[in-house]
Write a protein that binds this DNA or RNA. Structure first.
Lengths: 222, 222
DNA sequence: TAATCACTAATCGTATACAATATATGTTTG
DNA sequence: CAAACATATATTGTATACGATTAGTGATTA
């Protein structure tokens, strides 16, 4: 959404975060980022503020920008929101999907498969997320689309922090099942599949409250 | 969401827009805004970009910032999204509302009433909108809260452009009905009331496609 | 006369410089 | 020796200055 140059930096930082190459909590110094991309602090600041607005980055006054570190509570909230919105979006997509869209989704799943077999987990995860945003694009609903984009981005951070399953959630059968439903223009099936897919993802997180790092450290040294 | 000083400007511009003192399409020059609030362009830019992100302002490259002018399509989308999200939020609110919240909502409705009788339509409309955001706050769900805030803001612009009913939608019975449902902790009633309220608002808009200004002007001169 | 071109004014995009604030280190003092 | 303080460094917040783009105006020409 920002201007040309800031958008580039925005996108590069975003994909770096979405591919889990930038861990939650990492500091994003303005000077450092600026030097890396050959830009001035002015444009870097715009990019960081944009990312802050989409929830990928938190900015603390007089302290700087950091890759966001969603709390357990926020994790619940994000997946609650996804469970409400994405099924509705999947239904809309099923109503208006074209052959072109279908083949694009098919190729997308192949790319996801390839990344998995190349053991490029970062890319696989990012693709797994962007599958959901593609559904939203197909639904052709800008408002829902931007909501889903934001939720998916934050989900990536949540997964980086709280994912517990070993099967890395990838190569999920759900995406294929959803694609089938869309092929058949079966609105209700698409909605239902997406809903249980999201609930399944939510249940794949380890969201039990743990003692904070500080106290556990103090305990460890006692 | 931005820093301290930019946030002030943000809020002031926002309430000005929400009270319909700034019409859709009005230009927001950086120099001008900066001079009004005694701030530098740097901070004004940050404020404008934040508003752009929340959809109240559009920024055109090398042309500047303008109060957003939602299209008919966006109007439909915003109210579709509200019809999905706000009923769910109302249900959440009914589940966790406190006596304190109830009295605050009561006072809110009184203020709305007062503004109406003082013929302060701008303020009345803004209050009518913030009633919805208060519900979201009560639901105590940050993710839904920020979504609702953004949707309500844009709704204000949509109403400025497309509202057709003469009764100005104010003093709506629905808000009182919702408050009653919340008083009784009746989740299903709250959800249902909110849903029909939003559908009602949507139907109060005049969203028929009209010929563009240009062609109608050309026709007028022919 | 109508259209095109050049020029001027105004506004935005970006870089840089300075001021304010936080963090870390080293010193002092009870 | 511990704790509080003071100083130094580094990073962000803000202002200002310069370059680039656009819009508007008036002159020129077919």
């Amino acid at each position: 959404m920002p201007a040309g140059r800031a958008l580039d930096i925005c996108l590069k930082l975003q994909t770096a975060i979405l591919e889990h190459r930038l861990a939650p909590g990492v500091k994003l110094s303005e000077d450092e980022v600026g030097e890396i991309y050959g830009a001035s602090r002015t444009v870097v600041r715009a990019a960081l503020q944009a990312l802050a607005h989409s929830g990928l980055v938190t900015i603390e006054k007089n302290r700087g920008a950091f890759v966001a570190k969603p709390t357990i509570r926020e994790a619940h909230e994000v997946f609650q929101a996804r469970a409400l919105i994405e099924p509705a979006v999947a239904r809309l997509a099923a109503e208006s999907i074209t052959e072109d869209d279908l083949s694009r989704l098919h190729k997308h799943l192949e790319a996801e498969h390839d990344a998995l077999h190349a053991s490029d987990m970062g890319r696989a995860l990012a693709l797994s997320g962007s599958f959901h945003t593609e559904i939203a694009e197909i639904a052709d609903h800008r408002v829902f689309s931007s909501m889903v984009r934001s939720l998916i981005s934050r989900s990536s951070l949540i997964i980086a922090l709280y994912w517990k399953r070993s099967d890395t959630a990838c190569e999920s059968h759900s995406h294929h099942a959803l694609l089938d439903a869309l092929k058949n223009r079966d609105c209700s099936a698409a909605e239902e599949i997406q809903k249980s897919h999201i609930i399944d993802l939510h249940s794949g997180l380890d969201l039990k409250e743990k003692q904070s790092f500080k106290s556990s450290l103090a305990e460890a040294l006692a």
